[in-house]
Amino acid sequence: MTRYLLRRVWYMLITLFIIATFSFFLMKILPGSPLQAEDKLTEEQKEIILEKYGLNDPIPVQYAKYLGGLVKGDLGVSFKFDNTPVTTILFDRIGPSALLGFQALVIGSILGILLGLMASIFRNSPIDFSSTIIAVIGTSIPSFVFAGLLQYVFAVKLGWFPVALWGTPAHTILPTIALAIHPMATAARFTRTEMVEVLHSNYIITARAKGVAESGIILKHGLRNALIPLITVLGPMAVGLMTGSMVIEQIFAIPGIGEQFVTSVMVNDYPTIMGTTLLFAFGFIVIILIIDLLYGLIDPRIRLAGGK
């Protein structure tokens, strides 16, 4: 187990290193520099600024410094936003994003599992039919379209919730729903398919032949086996939440990482863009690692035995 974990972490570091290198050299190709905004500067002033950002060093030195900084958790200094360190910017903004993502994931998957479960129990009934429709719509419609609909109907027209911004729990409701719809639909669809398959398997008949009550069959024998594969879609769900957070934080003007990213793109603040990208990559890779470990823990068939 430890060896497996170490190997996985090692691979993770390699991947991060590749991404960091890739993004560093991309940054060098890009035309942006801290000077663009400030037009009328003397050569001397420009020198000072470039020196401050370390942009006068030869590229290999810059690269080494950049990697050295990364190891210490230093993502560089923003070209904009009063030269704040990127780490500080991201740290300030991770709260709302994490809260929204967490709420959406929990609410979405719980509702989705319930929906899929009901659909599989009452197969070919109106419940199943509407659950299928919800699942197709939920996986198809882009979250920003859904967010627009929610914002216009429930905030602009009906005024039940704040239109945008951040602060009270009420502010989180619409963005959470908009973010949750995709995980919910995915979970509903997946749960239904898996449950239908599991309920047709032989060990369910064995359980019936033992006289296990129907509720026990569905929950103890069915759902447990159906939900294990659901862990595999958590990865795509996490990516969905990341893309979702960018557009939804933008739409609801939430001071999160996604909104920061979109703003940085608009003002060509490359250090911040790169820092955010690295953070996304890091988050994604860690999630995948956790999913793999979780899978091993929950499914006895692939339990990562000591030697592996």
């Binding site: 993770m12 991947t15 590749i18 890739f22 993004s23 990516v239 793109v265 996304f280 990559a281 994604f284």
Partner: peptide
């Protein structure tokens, strides 16, 4: 395998910047 390890969102975003 290496390419799979890199989230496609990150690659797409980086490519679009360049």
């Amino acid at each position: 395998e290496i390419l799979v390890g890199i989230p496609n969102l990150v690659i797409i975003l980086l490519m679009m910047l360049v």
